[in-house]
Amino acid sequence: MPAIEVENLTKRYGARIAVDQISFSIEDGEIVGFLGPNGAGKTTTLRMLSCFQPATSGTARVAGYDVFSQSIGVREATGYLPESTPLYSEMRVFKYLWYRATLKGVPRRNRRGYIESAMARCDIGDVRERIIGHLSKGYRQRVGLADALVHRPSVLILDEPTSGLDPNQVRDVRDLIKEIAGETTVLFSTHTIPWVEQVCERVIIINQGRIVLDGTLSGMRKQIEPWARVEFRTSMDARPAMDAVRSVAPIFFVENLTVGDRTTLRYLTEKRNLEATRAQVQTVLASAGGAVENVNVVDAVVEDLFTKLTRGSEQIVGARR
């Protein structure tokens, strides 16, 4: 029996469709990264799975329970970390976890042990008597995680578990998820591919409410093999240069990597037409009054596939990094 089973799940807010007939299934013990750009529908989907919001149509089962008709069963079996990590800021960490463990039905005789091990896992033992509102963002995030884990759920649903964490803490969360792998099914949302690559194999990518990819990272790597990243510099301004490059048909998307005053662009295209495409780029830039310099061609990375799938036709990108 799959741990999470979603069929034609749809959520509308008035006329706006936030989640549009998505279907997927996650096996027991699997770890799955749920990716998508801002507004893709990740939070909406996870809220439906955690029984905070009902679907407009479609069905979902979590741990064998229907999210609508057997929601208490789902909620007992699930640990959920909402996007904003809401906490009672006036409570102390241990008291809060005690309260949450009670709500989630952890028997009194096990409660202290469960809380201690959740705190140990999330490395918050040193702040147990601190007031939550006085903690840093990273610690609060980890208190939220400990709360999600405390009743030892068979399914974990984490909405952006690493937002607001520093690189060390991001690594800790990664290790934590890997540690509970196997015994627990984990579905987590995030924006960053590189992080997913360190945690799990399976990825579901959602864009504008629809699933655009449901597969493995190795499958994605296969898909990007025939693609190349071409990076170059030019004396032109970034915006007209990007518009020019974008007019070349075989190019998937252009990104602006400019740092300082020298325009640097990167585009993604297929390797097999590489020479022809490069020549075309040279031509369009020349006719716009610029030249292509310092060209550098490398293999595409998995993130490029994500960008290609989720950017659609807009191709609006600002300077990055």
Binding site: P86, L87, R100
Partner: peptide, 14 residues
């Protein structure tokens, strides 16, 4: 307003 309704109502309570 501080979103704790989301943690509260996703706990197994009626």
């Amino acid at each position: 307003s501080r979103n704790t309704l989301e943690t509260l109502l996703t706990a197994p309570v009626h």
